[in-house]
Computed example of a mutant assay.
Amino acid sequence: MTAEINWTEITNDNQMNLESVLKLYDQSFPIDVRESHDVFRKGLKYATSSFPNSFRFLVGMEGDTVASFATGHYLADVNTGFIVYIVTNPLVRGNGLGSTTLLKMEELLKKDAISAGHSALRFSILETEMEELVHTEAEKEDCIKRERFYEKNNYRSHESINYLQPPLHGDTNGIPLNLLFKSFQGSQTITQIEISDIIQAMYREKYYEVNRIDKAILSKCLNKMGIDHTSF
């Protein structure tokens, strides 16, 4: 990278830089796919009482400017990190800043796995837009760039389930997205049972506990994916 980045974390007790990060967030995503700022604050608050689950809010600073940020949940029941956002500032992007931010987040999730009693993190997982569902050539180009970025960082598509992100803005229909995963232990494959359990953990810890999406809506999405969620 061309600039020195200082890494810090936003917590419920230390929200320095939060407003600057949220400004970059608003600039990076169209309003129809953005979560409310309150969701970030709820995540920080939830993290104070959710151990061994966690919520991580990583920020890379170049001086007083937000260079990048990432958020993610550690899902203790399935020993998996769920990375929600990786964002870089177009005004301070250096070579490899996105990959460095992703690596830093993975390191935090690995620490959470060890704190939860595991020898290592099992998987990291994330959602991305589907190229065939975008509306413009610019959006398609962005999708292709993201696919190449995550492939370069050893994330692979999981296609045995037609994944649905729960609706974020009061709708009742899920949003079709790609689900990418990275393995940190042994086998580079993920079983149908593992992915089903991980999705349920994502739904519980992120979309119910933090976003507070109604359980009936979450159950509807799980049913559409063919996931048995008797334990949800």
Rank of each mutant, 00 (worst) to 15 (best):
G43Q: 06
K182L: 06
T230D: 15
S50N: 14
I195S: 02
S187V: 09
Y150Q: 00
V33N: 04
E159M: 06
N173W: 02
E147H: 11
I144T: 12
F184M: 08
T48F: 03
R146M: 08
G174H: 09
D214N: 15
A47W: 10
T71Q: 02
R148H: 12
M61C: 13
N6G: 06
V66I: 15
L108A: 13
F149S: 12
K42R: 15
Q165C: 14
N211G: 04
S54E: 09
N162H: 12
I213L: 12
Y46F: 11
C143P: 03
K45D: 14
I125P: 08
Y46A: 14
P166R: 05
K224R: 14
N79H: 00
Y46C: 09
I227Y: 02
F181L: 07
L126S: 02
S187Y: 11
A67M: 05
I161M: 10
P30W: 11
D13Q: 06
L75Q: 07
E151N: 10
H118I: 04
S54K: 10
S183E: 08
F149P: 09
L24V: 03
D112Y: 04
D77I: 00
K152I: 00
A113E: 01
A67H: 01
R212L: 14
P90Q: 13
S183I: 05
I227T: 03
L91Q: 13
L180D: 02
E132D: 14
G186T: 07
S196L: 02
S68Y: 01
Q27P: 00
K110R: 15
T48L: 08
S36F: 02
N154Q: 13
Y203S: 07
P90E: 15
Y207P: 00
E139A: 13
E151C: 01
C143G: 00
V84H: 05
R212Y: 08
T88R: 04
M16D: 10
D38I: 15
P30K: 09
G96H: 12
E4F: 01
K104I: 12
K152R: 13
M1E: 03
I86G: 03
Y207R: 07
Y208H: 14
I175M: 12
I83L: 13
K104E: 12
D26E: 15
L18H: 04
K45W: 02
S196K: 01
I10F: 11
A116N: 04
I190L: 07
I10D: 04
T71L: 12
A201R: 05
N211I: 01
H118S: 10
I144Y: 06
R56V: 09
L58M: 12
G170R: 02
V210G: 09
I114S: 10
T128M: 08
L218M: 08
E127V: 03
T189E: 09
E35M: 01
N154Y: 14
A138R: 06
A47H: 12
R204E: 14
P90H: 12
E4A: 05
P176A: 08
A3H: 11
N14I: 07
